[in-house]
Design a protein around this nucleic acid. Structure first.
Lengths: 144, 144
DNA sequence: TTTATATCGGACAAAATTCTCTTAATATAA
DNA sequence: TTATATTAAGAGAATTTTGTCCGATATAAA
């Protein structure tokens, strides 16, 4: 469903969100340890998220990554997926046809427009604050 | 969502289903042309489907691929996906955790168990006969 | 029985994705 | 101002996925 990059990206963002709730800035190393991901590869993904303005990065001692507290409730998982994997999952033909729409649909089009729409809405209505809450309460985990 | 192999596999199977409806056996070359896929690679995927008993293959002159007419209505797209991509899409943690369940869920678990279940059911309730009908009527297409 | 025509199977090649290493840039603090 | 800690960026290596080639095998027909 999501690329590995995207999974790392989501987990990293959620971890940063959790810490940002308490005004804690976190380092690359800490993030990678928290989500069990390769450090240097995670760095690349954080760069993408940083350029997409989903997270903020600061260089130098005591640097690291954080998210403006005020934006936690305004950022969705959908934005993360979009930044890393693009809109393919939601918009492209599930069978890979170049053009596939109601006029000239692939055999799975009608079934899947709904699934794609629902998937998209599910991700778009989520927000980092809610998810960070659950993490704080220990209701959910980021690695295993 | 699906691997490229799986997309080819679904399209190939649907094409074979359509032709099998009229008792026509189709060659690898014809299939690849009909779904716009690389010939040799398509052959590999057809081998998988053949071993999974989803399609029948016959060697030699006038050989090719077909599906028992009586099985068209009993075969689902889900079976094809399962044979090629496995059950990962339906069963694995969407964030890639090794174990993720109601007891120790990832932050997206609760949202996604439903999506995965629905996706699975949607694919499991489909059948090749219905899909082949639509193809015959020109209501849907396999390449573009 | 020979020949032509298919798929099968294994080895290999190319491309995309995932991951690493090294150096640069930048900010903090002594 | 210098040393140190941190992310940024680029090159490239490893792995996985996708795709090709060719000989083996099976089958039908001449």
């Amino acid at each position: 469903m999501f690329s590995k990059s995207c999974k790392y990206g989501i987990k990293a963002t959620l971890y940063i969100a959790q810490k940002s709730q308490h005004d804690e800035r976190v380092s690359l190393k800490e993030i990678a340890a928290a989500i069990n991901s390769p450090i240097a590869f995670t760095a690349k993904i954080l760069q993408i998220l940083s350029k997409a303005m989903i997270i903020n990065s600061t260089k130098g001692p005591n640097g690291g990554f954080e998210i403006d507290k005020t934006r936690l409730s305004k950022t969705s998982i959908h934005q993360i997926v979009q930044a890393i994997d693009g809109n393919h999952l939601f918009e492209d033909c599930v069978l890979g046809l170049n053009s596939c729409n109601a006029n000239e649909p692939c055999p799975m089009h009608n079934e899947f427009v709904n699934i794609q729409k629902q998937l998209m809405e599910s991700l778009a209505t989520s927000n980092l604050l809610d998810v960070a809450m659950d993490l704080n309460l220990g209701l959910t985990v980021l690695k295993r």
